[in-house]
Amino acid sequence: MATLTLDIVSPERLLFSDAVEMAEIPAAEGDMGVLPGHAPMIVTLRGGVIRVHRGGSVTHRLFVAGGFAEVTPERCTVLADDATPVADLSIEDAKARLAKAEAAYAKAAKGADEAGRELAMARLLAARAELAAASAPSP
């Protein structure tokens, strides 16, 4: 089967780099499947899980808090704000981040400008996605 190269990079390190059959990424507009030969594009990512497909099944799951992805016919490069293998997520840590994000959003909703509210909402949604990923049963 045809493959494409998937690179997932966070500010701290390269988390994944290998040939894959498909990558599912959490684009801002909705989940997006990237296959070999995909049309070139750059997309914004929302908080969610990247699923790596090889051999007809999901082999890796990584949570990203946001970022960007550049897609070409041969490659998908994810530049993540923060990325963690789903197996390494902690429900307790995710709950704490969610509580902090909810408080920040409540504060921003009262006085911040529109850009501040949007940023607080994006962080809140990413925290909710992280908790969902941490709570989900392993495949």
Rank of each mutant, 00 (worst) to 15 (best):
T3G: 01
T72V: 00
P73I: 05
E102I: 01
D93V: 11
E24M: 14
L89W: 04
T84D: 13
D31C: 11
T59A: 05
A129H: 12
S57P: 02
T77N: 09
A99I: 08
I42H: 01
K95S: 08
A136C: 08
V86F: 09
M41W: 03
F63M: 05
C76F: 00
D81F: 03
R46M: 10
I25W: 06
L45T: 04
D88T: 10
A120K: 12
I8P: 05
G55Q: 07
V43Y: 07
A2C: 06
S135V: 07
A39C: 01
H53I: 07
T5A: 01
G111W: 03
A112H: 14
A83P: 03
A129F: 05
P137M: 15
A69Q: 05
A96W: 04
S10G: 10
P139C: 12
V52Q: 11
E24A: 09
E118V: 00
G66W: 07
V58A: 01
G56Q: 03
D93T: 11
S135F: 07
S10A: 15
L124R: 08
A19T: 13
D93A: 14
E21N: 02
E102L: 07
A120F: 09
L15Q: 04
G111E: 15
P85K: 15
L124Q: 01
V49F: 10
T44C: 06
L35S: 00
L119I: 08
L14V: 06
S138Q: 15
P137K: 15
D7L: 13
S57F: 09
G56R: 07
L79S: 11
R13I: 07
H60Q: 15
M1P: 11
V20I: 13
G48V: 03
L6A: 05
A129N: 15
F16T: 09
V49A: 04
L124F: 05
H38G: 02
A129Q: 12
E24T: 08
L119S: 06
P26Y: 11
A127V: 12
R46F: 00
R128W: 01
P137C: 08
P73W: 07
V71F: 00
V43M: 07
E24R: 15
R75P: 08
A115N: 11
A104M: 05
L6M: 13
R128M: 13
A96V: 09
F68K: 00
A69W: 06
L4Y: 04
L6Q: 10
R97S: 11
A101G: 02
R117Q: 11
F16G: 06
L6T: 09
L15G: 06
A132M: 15
T84N: 08
L124V: 04
I91Y: 02
E118T: 07
I8S: 05
R128P: 02
G116H: 11
E12T: 11
R117H: 03
